[in-house]
Design a protein around this nucleic acid. Structure first.
Lengths: 160, 160
DNA sequence: TGTGAAAGCGTTGCCTC
DNA sequence: GAGGCAACGCTTTCACA
């Protein structure tokens, strides 16, 4: 039932604990990590390498305070395309992947519209993105923006 | 000792390049990083420590493939509260922070509703979260769920 | 910011269970 | 099969220029 995944890796308690710690402190030393979970460094390093090789750990990211960098505006944008053929979707997605302003993008069910999280250095920058880039993409028919007041919980991935 | 507000830190080209690299490869060795940006390891380590201390780097996260862990379902949930006094918001937010299913949560402008990204190990798990936890929170008046087909772009933060 | 020495850490081969 | 130990080599750190 639960083996539809490409990787049928089985994770034991140690793997789960490693993931749990690495999820929050990705730059921790293997040695410190091994002390915390009660194993010696050797198997911990092996387990981390296996988790990386099997695709369970897909990478490590520094979490950067966007506001401190001057990116103070986050907007959620809902985009609808007027043509929903595969080519239009693919073209739109390729264009989105080239936009640094778009941090996150999901294709939604239903009317096959997209949900984007857009980050800019101000409302002027957002307007520029909207009028200068987004509305100029072919097949874009309607755009709806929602502005958040604040982020209540900031997660990267679900905790095991 | 120039410890000022996080917003007023000035970043030079080296800092930006360090952030850009750490953003994608947070576990890179300082030595490798220093070779890539053309500085010796010592100042690079110092810069990283300063970036952490000034709050520009808020942490490091391992990116974990949720599907490989069995968390195959992502749902965006829009929640509206019937009372919008501060206490109701605070209570709701505290409850949300305790839900491992809720990966990300934003308070939106307008009708002051919340946008949640919920991750579970299946639709049954989602239903359990919905009926067992979310609808039981006080002040929750309406809930709307949207299911994504796929993630087009998966970002952590805006690239500098 | 860079250099060099010292301390700390990760990696590997081998052994044990 | 997986964990642990020890030694080697690389990385980080600190004093000082």
């Amino acid at each position: 039932m639960k083996k539809s995944l490409p990787e049928t890796v089985t994770l034991d308690e140690f793997d789960i604990r490693i993931l749990r710690i690495l999820r929050d402190e990705a730059r921790i030393a293997v040695q410190d990590l091994s002390e915390r979970i009660g194993l010696s460094p050797t198997p911990v390093a092996r387990r981390i390498r296996n988790l990386e090789a099997s695709g369970i750990i897909t990478g490590y990211a520094a979490m950067i305070d966007e506001a401190a960098l001057g990116y103070s505006v986050t907007v959620f944008v809902s985009v609808k395309l007027d043509r929903q053929v595969d080519q239009a979707l693919a073209d739109f997605e390729n264009a989105i992947r080239d936009c640094p302003e778009v941090v996150d993008c999901w294709l939604m069910t239903g009317n096959r519209d997209y949900l984007l999280r857009v980050v800019t250095d101000g409302l002027a920058g957002f307007e520029e993105f909207l009028t200068g880039r987004l509305t100029r993409l072919p097949a874009v028919s309607s755009i709806e923006s929602s502005i958040p007041l604040r982020r209540v919980k900031a997660g990267i991935s679900r905790q095991p």
